[in-house]
Each structure stands twice: as structure tokens, then as C-alpha cells.
Amino acid sequence: MSDKQVKASAYWKENLRYLVILLSIWFAVSYGAGILFKDALDQIKLGGFKLGFWFAQQGAIYVFVILIFVYVRLMNKLDKKYGYDVD
């Protein structure tokens, strides 16, 4: 394999690792906090609503939006690392 192919393969593997980590976080927040741990989280109130309800309705969406910004930042760093940051 050429150097370009090796670099592209390493880039793609690191990109997939970021995706798996970030989607795992989102799954843990949306499924875990919104469904599995709902009863325990409902003991805490946030803005007058039970925290389990809040995560199921709003929290997972907020976390997903934050993870999008984290992914953009990670990909910008990854692009610079592998020389794909063309302006």
C-alpha cells in the first residue's frame, strides 16, 4: 500500500473510533438516563420536572447537539493531523 492509502486508512479508523465513542455516550444518556435509570433520576427535580422525564424529553437532544459540536472539533483536529485541512 502507498503512503497515501496508509494515511487514509489510519484517518478512517480514528474517525470510526470517535463515532463509536460519541454514539455510545449518546446511547447511554438517551437509553440509560431516559429509560433504565428513570426511576432513580425521578427523585431529583430540574426546573419543576423530574430529572428522568427531563432526560427522556429534552436531555438526550441537548447531549446529541453538544456531541455534534464535539465531533466537529475532533474532526477539525483530525483533519489537521492528517493534512486534510484545506481552506
Rank of each mutant, 00 (worst) to 15 (best):
W54C: 01
N15Y: 15
Q5K: 13
W12E: 13
G52Y: 01
Y18H: 14
Y71R: 14
A56K: 08
A60V: 00
Y11A: 06
L19V: 10
S9K: 10
I44S: 02
L74P: 04
Q43N: 08
K38T: 02
F27K: 14
D85G: 00
F53Q: 02
V20N: 02
F27Y: 15
W26M: 09
A28H: 05
L16C: 10
W26A: 14
F49C: 00
V65R: 03
L23Y: 10
M75C: 06
Q57D: 09
G52A: 04
S2T: 12
G34S: 05
I66P: 02
L22Y: 11
Q58T: 07
V72H: 08
Y71I: 00
K81L: 09
K50A: 14
Y71C: 00
M1P: 06
A56D: 10
V70F: 08
D42T: 02
R17N: 10
I68Q: 13
Q58G: 00
S9H: 07
A33G: 05
K4V: 14
L67I: 08
I68P: 07
V63C: 06
A60I: 00
F27Q: 13
Y11E: 08
F69M: 06
L16H: 11
W26D: 15
L78M: 11
D3F: 11
N76C: 03
A28V: 08
R17G: 05
F55D: 02
Y18I: 07
D3P: 01
D87K: 13
V72Y: 11
K80E: 14
L51E: 08
A33N: 10
A8Q: 15
